[in-house]
Nucleic acid binder design. Sequence first.
DNA 1: ATATACATCCTTTTT
DNA 2: GGATGTATAT
Length: 827
Amino acid sequence: MVRAGAYPRYVNSVNAYAEELLEGLNEPQRRAVQHPGGPLLVIAGAGSGKTRVLTHRVAYLVRTGECGLGEILAVTFTNKAAAELRHRVGDLLGRSTRGLWVATFHSACARILRVEAEKLGYTRTFTIYDSDDSKRLVKRCLEAEGADTKRFTPNAVRNQISDHKNRLRSVQQAQDLAAGHYDRTVADAYAAYQKQLVANNAMDFDDLMARTVDLFERYPDVRERYRRAFKHVLVDEYQDTNPAQYRFLQLLCMDDPMHQAGPSGGGAGRDALGAGDDTNALTAPLAGEEPGHRNLMVVGDDAQSIYGFRSADIRNILDFEDDFPDAEVIKLEQNYRSTQHILDAANGLIEHNTNQREKHLFTDEGTGDEVRVRALQDDHAEARWVVSEIERLAGEGVPLGDMAVLYRTNALSRAIETSLTQAELDYQVIGGVRFFDRAEVKDALSYLAWLHNPANTVAFARVVNRPRRGIGDTSVGRILSHAASTGVTPLEVIADPAAAGLKTAAVRAVTTFAGQIEELRERLFGGPDEVGGAGGPASQDLRIADLVEDVLRITGYRAELEASEDPQDEGRLENLDQLHAYAEEFDAAEATPEDDAFHALDRFLQQTALLSDADSKADGPDGQVTLMTLHNAKGLEYDAVFLVGLEDGIFPHSRAIDSGELEEERRLAYVGITRARRHLSITWARRRAMYGPPQSQVPSRFLRELPHDALDDASPEAMTGQPSFGGAERGRRDFSAIGRIGRGSGASRPGGPPRDLSSLGLKRGSDLVSSRADAEPAPSWAPGQRVRHVKFDAGEVVRMDGDVVVVRFDEAGEKRLIAGFARLETL
DNA sequence: ATATACATCCTTTTT
DNA sequence: GGATGTATAT
């Protein structure tokens, strides 16, 4: 339905103050900023000024008088992006941005849910579980079900449940959809887990989205309230939205989400129930409501959609016009970051994807350096080459802080780190264990979390024996089951441990613990308090930093670390000091005299739960080379970028090859390439030690997809490597050299690798030795299938066919392959 | 209940 | 290479 004229034409209201905001914008950017209203998709290529468009848009809306600052909701994925957006809008407007909602999806939802929690069976003090908490709870549920936690690992099951939630599948739907035994076990775990969450008065990250959607669907009046509050909704990184987030946006902006959807079905509806089913009791059309404002502006780049594994659905951005038929689409293709050779490489690579919007990045900045491609002998040589290039560029005046080394998996950082250390170059590694995920920090926070919410059994179970007090798994199990069966919190159980059936030694230990907790509660609530109640006058002057310190002192946590001989405990103490400093900062910044300690704690916990250490990310001190995964690099840029480990099996990752998710891998490579402003180098190693002894590697297929004109060395040697005849390794023959047979499109090229097994020291029909007794065949593997790619470990080589090796597996040998390294196609 | 020794498993991860 | 979990002994 076309609704021309239905939107306010504030564009025409001449307003010099507002028009000022259009200066310096290119044509499509300006159109986006001036968009009259209604659904708008901005396809913002890498480096095309997407944040600029968003900030100017917000400022423009305000200055034209289209709406007040407080009537705009801008949603991002990270706290960092939200903070930057707010900051830049403030700069543009030259005034405070108080009232403007700039938030991550999750914090916006958390804020809404705090107010409305009772409607969903929670209290407003509900706890937010991070992935570790939720994994623990899933594990407990699986054990309670008697599921085999070997086959059903808590992590895998948690991911499945997460996927269900992100696709807005209720427990019931998950159970209905479950086909096999595995799915059914997962669905049952989901049911138990969800029940436990409610009993714990806790929500996981996914719940923040899903429960808000529930809230809006079940309470049209609530939905209406928020829909009226926000006349304009803007979304950053739209390509990474999942179905729950898509639906959240629909509910906030549109008339009737379920019927708004175009032919392909709307995101959530499209996926919520699986194929063929399009109804859902929870999402029934809402009757008699007012039309939505439809002012939804989303900005993103389908070519940078790299979070599919977290249920992000690229179709949200690909099918935007189907979902919103009258949507305007604006493309930003002028790049302000990189030189043309780099953009050519990016353009050429991404062309190999089929599922995408056509796009061609260009720049006015000139061609610049060609992209350097290097094949190195092994991972050490690769690291040395990268470091020597870093030194060379540093000599040319490029600051170390403007250089980054990017890799597919964290494991690849080690060799680079070693070389950088040897060269005495300063570096920082982004990623790894986050501050708030560190065991000791999490322990301290869990104490606070349990004091705050005694129903939080995960926090209880975490801290009850930390430091060790002689309360083992059996005792904890008894306390928890007694709490569950009598419907009370663990706090009440530990007041009378004998009633839970604990042995005398355990009773004594628990009583000591209970005494410590009581003391802490007195501090928090300002006096003796009946068990379980959050009432009582909370102390006014207690600061969170003090509370942290009280926890560490009264529980003996700090004392144990101080007494320890373990040198690692020194670092743990430092981390706790850092937590203390963080709490002090919070106290200073958030001190509200009218607030009592409990409510301060409430906000403190919420903040820490939703905060990663985003602030530290990539904003490290100058003079340091930055090392990080490609995923972490999204949104960042550097003068010089090194992309290392471009080898099949690493990048693209073997699991992505197996599951056919090459397009997302390619987008990841695209993200990496487009991080570079002036210098880009891509390397691969012929041999690499990953876990254990070095293995022969095959250059990434992505190398061959780069346009040769953009490269400094497109020789077969750099791109495909020289044949090498591996010897015995790990007590077996190295068959990985077969991988050299693979050469892209299959056209034979002079000087190419050998096509004959005998030249590899293999005979037709020769046995390939199994590498691992525990290796299971992938479910889809069967005799007579073709094995593309490298590193199969067993079976019989029947023949080779171009770049394909045909392998037959023996009937009996069920244990023969490393799944994940061979790509199979049915003959 | 806990300490130790052994086996096993390895993407990516904005919240 | 190293972190994490399980089996075994104390």
